[in-house]
C-alpha cells in the first residue's frame, strides 16, 4: 500500500468533543453547533495502491482540497494517522508520518510526493525563473551538482513540450496553461511516488485542458506514479481516474470504481452530483 489514511480529521477552530459527531454527512453540516469550529475533513479513511489513480469529487467546501493538503502536510492534521509507502519506526512497525521528525517530513514532501495546485502562485515561486522553480524541487530532493540539476530541469521542461529556450523566463511571462505545465515539470522532477493534483485544469480553456490532461496521463503511464486528483469536473475525473471517492460536508460518502460512481451512484448526494452533469 502506498498511502493509507486512518480516521483523519481536520478541524479549523478551537474544536470540542462534539465537533466530529455533530457534523458530517449524517448531520448535514460542516460547522460544529457547539463551538462553531469548521470541520473540513471528518473521519476519512482511504487507501491508495501503487500506480492507482484516485479521484476526489464533491461540492465546494466539502473538504476535497483540505484532504490533499493534509496528505501533503500543508496543514496539520487534527486527528488520525497517515501511513506512506511502508515507512517504519525503529521497532519495525508502520509509522504514522505525522509523527516523523521535521527533516523526514520535508524529505517526504520534496522527494516522495508532489502537489500541483489550481493556483500557480501556490505551486511556483514567481521570483524564480521556470528553470529555477524546477531546480528548487530537484535541490530539495537532494541533488547538489549544478550541471545535473540544469540537465534534469531541461529534461522535464522537454517532457512538458516547452521550448528549451524559454527555461530562463519568469512564470509571469507564461500563459495560465503554460504555468500549469511548469508546475507539472516541477512536481515530476523529483520522480515522486505520489502526485497530488488540486483542480489542475480549472480555469483553463478546454483545448488547453485537454492537452494538459493528456500530458498528465501520458507521464503517469510512463513514470508509474500514483495520483490523487481533486476536481469538481466529472469529465476530468472520468478521463483521468480509475477510482473515485465522493465527499460531502467533510465526510466520505461513497467510494468505488469511477465508472460505477458515474453510472450507478448509490448515495443520494452522488446521484444528485452525477445528474447535475451537463
Amino acid at each position: 500500500m502506498l498511502l493509507e489514511l486512518k480516521n483523519v480529521s481536520k478541524i479549523f477552530g478551537s474544536g470540542c468533543n462534539n465537533c466530529l459527531p455533530e457534523t458530517g454527512e449524517q448531520a448535514d453540516r460542516a460547522i460544529c453547533p457547539v463551538c462553531h469550529s469548521v470541520v473540513a475533513v471528518n473521519d476519512v479513511s482511504l487507501k491508495v495502491k501503487d500506480k492507482e489513480i484516485l479521484g476526489v469529487v464533491g461540492e465546494s467546501g466539502s473538504g476535497k482540497s483540505t484532504l490533499l493538503q493534509l496528505i501533503f502536510q500543508d496543514q496539520p492534521v487534527s486527528e488520525g494517522t497517515i501511513f506512506f509507502n511502508g515507512i517504519k519506526d525503529r521497532e519495525g512497525n508502520n509509522c504514522n508520518i505525522l509523527e516523523l521528525p521535521p527533516a523526514r517530513k520535508a524529505w517526504l514532501r520534496n522527494h516522495e510526493m508532489s502537489m500541483i495546485y489550481q493556483n500557480p502562485h501556490l505551486g511556483l515561486n514567481f521570483n524564480f525563473s521556470a528553470g529555477g522553480n524546477i531546480a528548487e524541487k530537484i535541490l530539495g530532493a537532494g541533488e547538489k551538482r549544478y550541471e545535473v540539476i540544469r540537465d534534469q530541469a531541461l529534461y522535464y521542461f522537454g517532457k512538458i513540450e516547452m521550448p528549451r529556450s524559454r527555461i530562463d523566463d519568469y512564470p509571469d511571462n507564461f500563459s495560465g496553461g503554460q504555468q500549469q505545465r511548469i508546475q507539472i515539470a516541477k512536481a515530476l522532477s523529483s520522480s515522486p511516488r505520489l502526485l497530488l493534483l488540486d483542480e489542475p485544469t480549472t480555469g483553463l480553456d478546454v483545448s488547453v485542458q485537454a492537452r494538459i490532461l493528456d500530458l498528465i496521463k501520458a507521464l503517469q503511464y510512463e513514470m508509474g506514479f500514483s495520483m490523487i486528483v481533486v476536481s469538481h469536473d466529472l469529465g476530468v475525473i472520468n478521463h483521468l481516474t480509475d477510482l473515485t471517492l465522493v465527499m460531502k460536508n467533510g465526510s466520505l460518502v461513497e467510494y468505488g470504481l469511477t465508472d460505477q460512481i458515474l453510472e450507478d451512484p448509490q448515495h443520494p448526494y452522488t446521484q444528485l452530483l452525477v445528474s447535475s452533469k451537463l
Binding site: 470504481l257 460505477q260 453510472e263 448509490q266
Partner: peptide, 9 residues
C-alpha cells in the same frame, strides 16, 4: 453485462 463488469453494483 454491466453488473458482471462491475460498472453496476
Amino acid at each position: 453485462l454491466k453488473t458482471i463488469f462491475r460498472t453496476y453494483l
